[in-house]
Design a protein around this nucleic acid. Structure first.
Lengths: 235, 235
DNA sequence: AGGACTTTGAATCATTTGTTTGACTCGAAT
DNA sequence: ATTCGAGTCAAACAAATGATTCAAAGTCCT
């Protein structure tokens, strides 16, 4: 009665606190560099709590990863579907595809209780550290499926690009996205604040304009055999 | 005489083997996930060797980082200087700036004894993991100085972009570069090999074309105040 | 109130971590 | 021949790690 929380509530509550503490520490230091003790200490729980609630450190990492990535990927697919329905038989405009690809990060960070900075750094860490090799299977598979879907759509929107060329440009685009998310504050530090504090919409808009131009760039005509110093080439 | 190596030579050789083993393991697993025992074992040396030759693990990491990044940055600056001298008072062409920015990776990997894959992954790891926060000071400072120089040159080549806009586009470009280097084989895995096995020149050319188009994209006219659902915006 | 659970927490476990030590090897200088 | 010193090595170190145990405490249902 007088006690604010029952033990059962407290059980779920500690689980929640552990998750939040883990998210904070992971986003700050990366998944590898955080010990179970760091997490439980920040969460104000016992060392054993992680093993009790998550069956070990690894599964906690998995849950932290799954928590936001899967919703992001699902929203991406949902948005893509909407766009394609709207476009009918015509290809979806490139800018709209890019928007559908990155905006889910914004809507999901708002749905979450994480600060934007934490959320984006956390998302970035999911890729950066180990090339997605440490992702739980559910995430990796969802990711791959989502990418396939988008690849098709990008292919339609950019019919002049051959498949390989498109893959590489998407690769560049994803790199720009991840780096932007994970290291936005590095940019601020390096530029002594000259990068400003733009709204997310502004950053999104900048990103989409940059990448759409890059993706739309006309494919390079097949190399005309030509002799020259091997260290030089024409753009 | 008859002995192949004196003790002193052997000393330098072990040091070298340790460096190479560290480079291989770091590039494969990242700087955090490799223990000194992993390194010494691969190098066929004693556990104490790292401390004897490098005064501890941290300094070994520093040396591995410095070994290639600094030459890359110096070559970048040298190339930029050459380009600017050649251009006289006119701005250097954007594609040439981008080339001067990324080509040093190629020339330095050839100078090194590392495989391309290892070298690029290693370079990527220097940034990815911790936002350059773990870089040795000499590297971070050199990096910052180099970036400043290039920022000025990019600004001249793109006079229509305001400073903040330019910073973000460079940020996108750097992200694409790092991701491309560090995760090229992730791309191959995800696409089941459809990304092909392009030469470095080809990848370089693709990257430069992608980024030059993105950077050149006309700046967005300042937002005209307009009411609409906050979740939507015009590109 | 009492019994069946869930949840906690201190203590402990076996590993692994980076580092240190001190004896040893062996070529080179004295 | 003796000394010196750089290099190597097995052994051991303290600290930190993830995991486990088990008794105590709390909660819920009857």
């Amino acid at each position: 009665m007088a006690t604010a929380k029952s033990k059962a509530e407290s059980g779920a509550a500690t689980r929640q606190r552990l998750l939040e503490a883990a998210e904070e520490l992971f986003s700050e230091r990366g998944f590898e560099a955080v010990s179970v003790r760091d997490i439980t200490e920040l969460a104000g729980a016992n060392v054993a709590a992680v093993n009790y609630h998550f069956n070990g450190r690894d599964q906690l990492v998995d849950q932290v990863m799954e928590r936001y990535i899967n919703p992001v990927n699902e929203e991406r697919l949902a948005r893509l579907e909407t766009l394609e329905r709207k476009a009918g038989r015509k290809p979806v405009a490139l800018e709209e595809l890019l928007d559908a690809f990155v905006r889910p990060f914004v809507t999901q960070v708002r749905r979450s209780e994480l600060s934007e900075k934490m959320f984006f750094k956390l998302m970035g860490r999911c890729f950066g550290d180990d090339g997605m090799r440490t992702m739980p299977d559910s995430v990796e598979q969802g990711f791959q499926a989502m990418l396939m879907r988008f690849m098709k759509a990008f292919g339609k929107a950019l019919p002049d690009l051959d498949h390989e060329e498109l893959l590489w440009r998407i690769h560049f685009m994803v790199g720009a996205m991840i780096h932007t998310m994970a290291h936005a504050e590095t940019l601020n530090r390096f530029t002594h604040g000259a990068s400003g504090n733009p709204s997310m919409e502004r950053t999104l808009s900048r990103f989409i304009r940059f990448c759409s131009a890059g993706l739309r760039q006309q494919a390079k005509e097949k190399v005309t055999k030509k002799k020259g110093p091997q260290d030089e080439f024409e753009f």
